[in-house]
Every structure is written in structure tokens, then in C-alpha cells.
Design a protein around this nucleic acid. Structure first.
Length: 680
DNA sequence: GGTTATTATTTTTTT
DNA sequence: AATAATAACC
């Protein structure tokens, strides 16, 4: 007897939702109702098949996707039955496992998570010890370490791995630096982003009984955006399915755009070989976009090499042909786009349905300027995170040290912030104490404080403060403890001392204020579970999509134009999409062309951008763009070359795209705008 | 030793 | 154009 009906699904969607045992591969084209299918599948499992929700695990890539998926399943299941469900990102799943099990690897479960800046600092330090008569590029080294980690290679395995070439001086440098790097992290009881996966996989590999435990806990596993998984994530999935083969992966090889980050498209292309007896289901009907947009998208992606055969179709034959606008320079490009957005709004359109998509973050400046000038509200997704700002990092470093005093990087960051008279000399002497006593830097400061030497005055205060707040964070709420901490260290006074521009100071102050507020929100939402530990974890795993406006109604997109990169647009949709910078050397990007990268990935990125549009798609390219401060001529992207029949190309430099009548109207409009601006 | 001037170098995408 | 790295200077 079924309680939950799948009749709201199409034939293939229903097949996907009702096949729950054994391996399943759902090839879900853009806009094919993937999330709907997956959420119905979970509801079906719980309500019809009586599978306890606690034995279902769904894994996504971003917090935002996880949150949305969980909300939608709860919408179907109700809060009570939905609560036990685990919907998590790969990274937070690994944190969860490591918090339980990391002691098997010799770390304590109060580990810190190090971000990109911390990583660079360690590599810099390592390189000061490694001289081979040459200077090495930190980014490059770090990139290689990341690559090795994503392929599951630990420092001790590196030399025997196929990636090591003793002729290559970089490989030799990496051999030393990687070892140092990993030891340093361990000494600080810290792990980096890649370690979250690497150590988890390593752990499950070394301890099959632990793998079995988690595999038995999660009897049914689903992985979203499977085309973006890397070799480690693949191993993790294998370990988690070791007790059963109830694995359902959802993805679209045409939307694989994260190879640069280690994603391996072969994971999805060869899934059927990895799991015998896989049921493959294709979702090819697009419910999102008009036929005209899908036709263009299909032609663009057709030339991508090595893809799984499939063709999307749409039955929605309304709407205009996609446009391709030729514009002058970047300011002109931004200007015509914003003008068009204003016209759309005048016609009753909502800004919430409009997005501007670009290949690279460097493109946003002219658009921001134009939007601000015309007073069109907008919101930028991604880019710099709040938590990347210096002041916020200082405060997070305080929290980190309070939680894990071994975290030497954070400790050194805040030792003299605000100034306590602990300069390089004091630091050096305490590092020496730490070395002699084989203890952490923090313990060295404690030792020195106990011995009562005069030189350690600031240090003694510092140590006392940290100890005091370890206590305070236990006794008071997170938000309270944090704000008294900021008072106690006189952080505002420190800001005042360091920023003399009042505008800048105000900005810093409000950032700190915002940080406190976010701690308050967190406290409010999590109640007594709002621990320091959880808060730090949330901060560090937050992705740039999470512009935390969680006080507001999450279902209502605000009346703002959305600006974001093509990468962060994956999974989203908008009525109107401006795909800007459709130029050679932009997409495909110059780096990809000159460094022999995979042009197919750029093509797929282009495909992702086009398929975000539901109703109207406008692509633009500039004839001229400033590159490194120099005007450079530009040309339209090869991806839309020879597809002229599928879009309407317009020269936006003049009014050539308008009929005479429209041109008159336009001129009158501009004119009256001018008059009213003069009157102001 | 720390600050400032000059010069080199960069602009891909991010959990 | 903007930023980071390096050199030069106080």
C-alpha cells in the first residue's frame, strides 16, 4: 500500500525514483527535473519502502545544494520523518567521520582546518629550508601537493608514484616540501581541505572495519553532480558502499566543469564498469528552457569529445531566439546590458529573474559600476568571502586557538594583534623554548609565563586570556563569549589605530559587527548545540555561495539582479540570462588555449551558461577589452561561430538593431532621462 | 630593521 | 590597473 505517489513524475523520472536497490546511474541533462526526481526518490524510499531515513545518505558538493535538497525532501516527508536523513557535502561528511575516528591517525579530534592562506604560509616556510639554487613558485608547489592529495598519494608514497620524476626539479622540491607540509600540519593538529577527504579515505582504507561500520549505517547512498567527483571522492564512495551496492549517482557528463580541481570525468563515464549490473536511466526532456535555447545548447555541446550520447529536447516553442550582441568596450557592454535590464523591469519583469553570468571574476567591475550608476539593485554571488577579510580572519584565529591551542599558525597570527609587545624577537625565543622542551608554541608561552621572566609579560597576558576564554565559551553562549572577547582584547581600538581612513575604518567595524551578528544568528538557530567547535567548522566549510541571509524567507529570491561566474551558476535557472564576454580567450580562456588545457571543458562551461536561461538568452562580446591595462581587439568565441542560424546577432554600437520607430523612441527616452538628471 | 620606491607580474574557474 | 615581490633607502 503506497502512501506517496510518484505520478507527478515523467516515465523515466519515475523509473529513476523507484529503482532503489543496486547501482543506478541517472544521466540527468540540464533542466531535466533532477532535483525533483532525487527528492521524490528519497520520499519514496521512506514512505513506501519503509526504509528508515537514518540509513539514507545524500551527498552534494555545496552547502547550498545540500540545504536545498534537505528542505525539499522535508517538504515531502514532513519534519518528523525527514529529520533523520543525512544530506551533506563531501567535506562535512568527512569532518563528521574524522571527528569520530581521527585518533586512529594520531591527530586529536579538536583539529583545525587550514585554508588557502594558511597553506601558502606553510609552503613559504618549507621553502626557506629548501634551497636548490632556485626559486620556486609557491602556487605551483601547492598545486602539485593538492593534485597528489586528490589522487590519494601521501608523502611517503610519492617517490614510488607515477607522478614523481627525479629529473624534474619541481618534483624534487615537492618531495621535501610535501613531507614538511604534512608534518607541520600534524604538529599544529590541523588538516587542510584536501586532507578532509584524503585522511578519511586513508583511514577507511587502513581500517576496513570502520569502513564497514559506516557502510552499514548508510544502506542507501546518493551522490549528486557525480561528474564532478575526483579520485578521492570516488574511493570514499567505494568504501561507503563496501557493505552493499545501493549507490545511486546523478550527473551529466556535459556539465563536468571542475577538472581543474581534480574532478575526473571518467568516474561518471565508466560508472557502469565500476559497478556491475548498473541500471542506467537517461532524463532527456528539458522542462526549463525554450526550444530555441535548447537547440543552440545542443549544437554547442555536440562537438564536445567523448561524451555519452544523448539529446535534450524541449517542447516549449515560445520565446525569442537567443541574441548575440556585439559591443564596443567593456563599459559599453555593461551599459547595454543594464539598459536592457531596466527596460525589462519597466515591462513588469522582476530583477530576481535576471542573471549576469561571466567566465571570470575580473569581468564584474564594469557591470557593478553600471548597475550602481543606474541604481539597479544587484547581488554578487561568490568572489571574496566575508571570512577572507583580515579582521575576520584575526577573530577566527582567536577562536581557533581557544579551541585548539596547538594551532600554531593561528597563534602566530594573533600573538601581536592587538599589539602586546610580542615582536619577532620574543617569538623567536619562545620558538626556541618550544624546541628545547618539545612542546607547542602555546605551551612554551605558558612555561615562560610560569617562570616569570620579564620578557614574557605580554605573553603571560595572552596565555591568560586564551585560558580564560576556553572557560567562557563553555559557560556562556557563543555570541556572548565572542563579544566579550572582542571587548577584552580591545579589538576596535586596534582597528582605529591601524586604519586612519574613516571610510575604511567604518567598513572594518561593520565587518566585525556582521561577524558578531552571524554568531548571534548561529546561537539562535542551534540553541544549546551552538558550540564553539561547530561554529568554527561552519565558518571554515562555508562556501562562497552561502551569502548567509538566513533570517529571510529562503524561498523568495529578492528583487535583485544576480551576478556570478559560470561555475557558480551550475544548478540554477533564470528567466533572463546575460552571458557576457562570449569571446575568444575568455571562453575558451586564454590559459586553456596557450597551456594546452582541455578545450572540451570550456565548451561544457559554455553549455552550462546557455542552459541556465529559461526564456531569454543574451550573449555579448566586446570588440575591445583592456588586458593588463592595454586595449586589445577581441573576437567572438569559437563556440558560437558557425551557429549563426541559431541566434540573432546584433551590433549594439549603433542603433542598428532597432527599427526606425524603436530608434526614435529610444532617443526620446535617453533625452528625457538626460533632462531629468539635469534637474536633480 | 623597517619602511618606501621600483619593478615584475598577473587575470580562470573553488569545496 | 592593480597587486605582489624585490630593491633601495633611511
Amino acid at each position: 500500500m503506497s502512501h506517496f505517489s510518484l505520478s507527478g513524475l515523467s516515465e523515466p523520472q519515475r523509473a529513476a525514483a523507484s529503482t532503489i536497490n543496486g547501482p543506478v546511474l541517472i544521466l540527468a541533462g540540464a533542466g531535466s527535473g533532477k532535483t525533483r526526481t532525487v527528492t521524490y526518490r528519497m520520499a519514496h524510499m521512506v514512505l513506501n519502502e519503509k526504509i528508515p531515513s537514518s540509513s539514507i545518505l545524500a551527498v552534494t558538493f555545496t552547502n547550498k545544494a545540500a540545504k536545498e535538497m534537505k528542505e525539499r525532501v522535508i517538504g515531502l516527508l514532513g519534519k518528523r520523518k525527514g529529520r533523520g536523513l543525512t544530506v551533506s557535502t563531501f567535506h562535512s561528511l568527512c569532518v563528521r567521520i574524522l571527528k569520530e575516528e581521527i585518533h586512529h591517525l594520531g591527530y586529536s579530534n579538536r583539529f583545525s582546518i587550514y585554508d588557502g592562506g594558511d597553506q601558502v604560509a606553510i609552503v613559504r616556510e618549507a621553502l626557506t629550508y629548501y634551497h636548490a639554487g632556485k626559486k620556486f613558485d609557491k602556487k605551483m608547489i601547492l598545486g602539485r601537493i593538492g593534485f597528489l592529495k586528490n589522487n590519494g598519494i601521501l608523502p611517503e608514497d610519492y617517490i614510488q608514484s607515477p607522478f614523481f620524476n627525479e629529473e624534474d626539479e619541481y618534483d624534487l622540491a615537492v618531495e621535501t616540501v610535501y613531507r614538511f607540509y604534512q608534518e607541520r600540519l600534524k604538529f599544529c593538529n590541523a588538516i587542510d581541505f584536501d586532507d578532509l577527504l584524503l585522511l578519511t579515505v586513508h583511514l577507511l582504507d587502513k581500517h576496513p572495519e570502520i569502513a564497514r561500520k559506516y557502510s552499514e549505517k548508510y544502506q542507501y547512498i546518493m551522490v549528486d553532480e557525480y561528474q564532478d567527483t575526483n579520485p578521492l571522492q570516488f574511493s570514499l564512495v567505494q568504501a561507503l558502499t563496501s557493505a552493499h551496492h545501493n549507490i545511486c549517482v546523478v550527473g551529466d557528463d556535459d556539465q563536468s566543469i571542475y577538472a581543474f580541481r581534480g574532478a575526473d570525468i571518467r568516474n561518471i563515464l565508466e560508472f557502469e564498469n565500476h559497478y556491475k549490473g548498473t541500471r542506467v536511466i537517461k532524463l532527456e526532456q528539458n522542462y526549463r528552457s525554450t526550444k530555441k535555447i535548447i537547440d543552440l545548447a545542443n549544437e554547442v555541446i555536440k562537438l564536445s569529445a567523448g561524451r555519452k550520447e544523448k539529446t535534450m529536447f524541449s517542447t516549449n516553442d515560445t520565446g525569442p531566439k537567443p541574441y548575440l550582441w556585439r559591443t564596443g568596450d567593456t563599459d559599453h557592454e555593461a551599459g547595454v546590458v543594464v539598459d536592457d535590464i531596466i527596460a525589462y523591469q519597466k515591462d513588469g519583469g522582476s530583477l530576481a529573474d535576471v542573471a549576469i553570468l561571466y567566465r571570470s571574476n575580473t569581468q564584474i567591475i564594469p557591470f557593478e559600476d553600471a548597475l550602481r550608476l543606474s541604481m539597479v539593485p544587484y547581488r554578487i554571488i561568490g568572489g571574496q568571502k566575508l571570512y577572507d577579510k583580515k579582521e575576520i580572519k584575526d577573530l577566527i584565529a582567536y577562536l581557533s586557538v581557544i579551541h585548539n591551542p596547538k594551532d600554531e599558525l593561528s597563534l602566530r597570527r594573533i600573538l601581536n594583534v592587538p599589539n602586546r609587545g610580542i615582536g619577532p624577537v620574543t617569538l623567536e625565543s619562545h620558538l626556541e623554548i618550544a624546541k628545547v622542551n618539545e612542546c607547542s608554541l602555546f605551551e612554551a608561552f605558558e612555561l615562560a609565563a610560569q617562570s616569570g621572566e620579564k620578557v614574557a609579560h605580554g605573553g603571560a597576558d595572552f596565555v591568560k586570556t586564551i585560558r580564560k576564554y576556553q572557560q567562557k565559551f563553555q559557560e556562556h553562549t557563543l555570541a556572548e563569549a565572542l563579544s566579550t572577547l572582542i571587548e577584552e582584547i580591545e579589538y576596535y581600538a586596534y582597528l582605529e589605530k591601524n586604519y586612519d581612513h574613516p571610510k575604511m575604518l567604518e567598513k572594518k567595524r561593520s565587518d566585525v559587527q556582521y561577524f558578531i551578528e552571524s554568531a548571534e544568528r548561529f546561537t539562535r538557530f542551534r540553541g544549546k548545540f551552538a558550540t564553539l567547535e561547530e561554529f568554527i567548522e561552519k565558518l571554515l566549510l562555508a562556501d562562497s555561495q552561502n551569502e548567509e541571509k538566513d533570517d529571510e524567507d529562503p524561498d523568495v529570491r529578492r528583487n535583485e539582479v544576480t551576478l556570478m561566474t559560470l561555475h557558480s551558476s551550475k544548478g540554477l535557472e533564470f528567466e533572463v540570462v546575460y552571458f557576457v564576454g562570449m569571446e575568444e580567450e575568455m571562453i575558451p580562456h586564454k590559459k586553456t588555449i596557450t597551456e594546452g588545457g582541455d578545450i572540451n571543458e570550456e565548451r561544457r562551461l559554455c553549455y552550462v551558461g546557455i542552459t541556465r536561461a529559461k526564456e531569454k538568452l543574451v550573449m555579448t562580446y566586446c570588440q575591445q577589452r583592456k588586458i593588463y591595462g592595454k586595449d586589445t581587439p577581441r573576437h567572438k568565441s569559437r563556440f558560437v561561430q558557425e551557429l549563426e542560424a541559431l541566434y540573432e546577432e546584433q551590433d549594439r554600437n549603433a542603433l542598428g538593431h532597432l527599427t526606425d520607430e524603436e530608434a526614435d523612441e529610444y532617443i526620446a527616452d535617453v533625452f528625457s532621462g538626460l533632462i531629468s538628471s539635469l534637474e536633480d
